[in-house]
Amino acid sequence: MTNTEVNQYLKYGTLALVTFQTTFNVLLLRYSRLEKSGDEGKKYFESTLVLMAEVVKFIVCISLLVFQNGWVLSKSAEIFYKEIIANIHETRKLSLPSALYTLQNTLLIVAISNLDAATFQVTYQLKILTTAFFSVLLLGKQLSGRQWVALFILMTGVICVQLPTGASKITDATSLQSHQSIIGLVAVLISCLSSGFAGVFYEKLLKHGNQKSIIIRNLQLGVFSLIFGSLGVLLSLQNIREFGFFFGYTPIIWTIVFVQAFGGLVIAATMKYADNILKGFATSISIILSSVCSYFILNDFKFNLMFIVGALMVICATYFYGVSPKKESLRSPDMEELIEAEKKVTDV
């Protein structure tokens, strides 16, 4: 099997993986918020889920560091101390994005608790808009005319999805549903802002910082993520003391923990082996799968004309934003060089 064939398998393998991970994570989260559990319908605490996902992610990154150093623990411990603890000046640069990522992960649970999986998936694509905005602002990137049009279509599509479906009798149920939709929408919007800024800030550090290893950067990020995750747990400490840290945890919740923890690795693999067109394609498939599963399995969503029109616009916008002439690149030359260097480091 040639290297080209291997790369093709890896490319489409990561496409399938990111599609599965994105869809599965959203559906499981939504199901976990709909499921009846615990005393008086109480569910697991969002803060413990966020922290546990960060713990697992940190363990995975440590394992990758050890693997990269030939399973020599002493050498790995020396690198960890030198690059993360002793080099605290560089490590503390990750405090801001880690705080934003922790906030984002918490708000996503709030959002999926108040929005059906399909509406959440479509609305969350606004992170493309916020990422583009901060890329222009912080990295000085230039977007093509096609990309600006795609962003406009994206905004229009999300607005269509969020529009009310028509006049209906105002009841306590519809009033509650409207209130929940507003909470979910606000949570998604803040998450998109957080995701866009944190992602671009993290890319800037990778490109211009002294540390070029993505594994080390993820460990530096993980240190602060554990700290901020623990602070979130402290905020709900009274309830945790009463019910227990793992209150409401079921096999479904543990599955969510591991799916979220490995989500970062999936994104890294996508960055390495797939291109933006394939990532847009994966997002489109994920939106469709989430909508279908939300309708047929979760039974918390009904298709309507505005949703279908808006979802199609978002899917088209996502695809066309990733398509650019060969002479253009959605990643800067510095980022391309960084990714190529990382390939040489991680290829075994």
Rank of each mutant, 00 (worst) to 15 (best):
I109S: 07
V149Y: 08
L10G: 10
G310P: 03
A111P: 03
V257N: 00
Y202F: 14
S135V: 12
M306A: 13
F201E: 03
E340K: 05
E78G: 15
S181C: 13
T22Y: 13
L234V: 09
E342H: 08
V323L: 07
F246Q: 06
V56H: 01
I88L: 13
A99G: 09
V292S: 00
L312W: 02
S113E: 13
T102H: 12
V186W: 06
S286M: 11
A261D: 02
F246T: 14
K57H: 04
L176T: 09
Y124F: 15
I190M: 10
Y273N: 02
Y202I: 13
H89Q: 09
G70Y: 02
Y295T: 12
Y101F: 15
G263S: 08
I62Y: 14
I285Q: 12
F133Y: 08
L73Y: 14
K42E: 02
I253T: 07
K75R: 14
S230P: 09
C61T: 04
I183S: 10
S47F: 04
E203V: 06
V110L: 11
L189D: 05
F80I: 06
F245L: 05
I88D: 13
N218H: 05
I112M: 06
L143N: 10
A187T: 13
V66A: 07
A317W: 07
L221N: 05
A282V: 12
R241Y: 15
F301C: 03
R217S: 14
C316A: 15
D334K: 08
V110D: 08
N114H: 11
E54I: 00
S175R: 14
V6Q: 01
A53L: 03
K11F: 06
V6H: 06
V110Q: 07
F262A: 06
G41Y: 01
W148R: 09
L151D: 12
K344V: 03
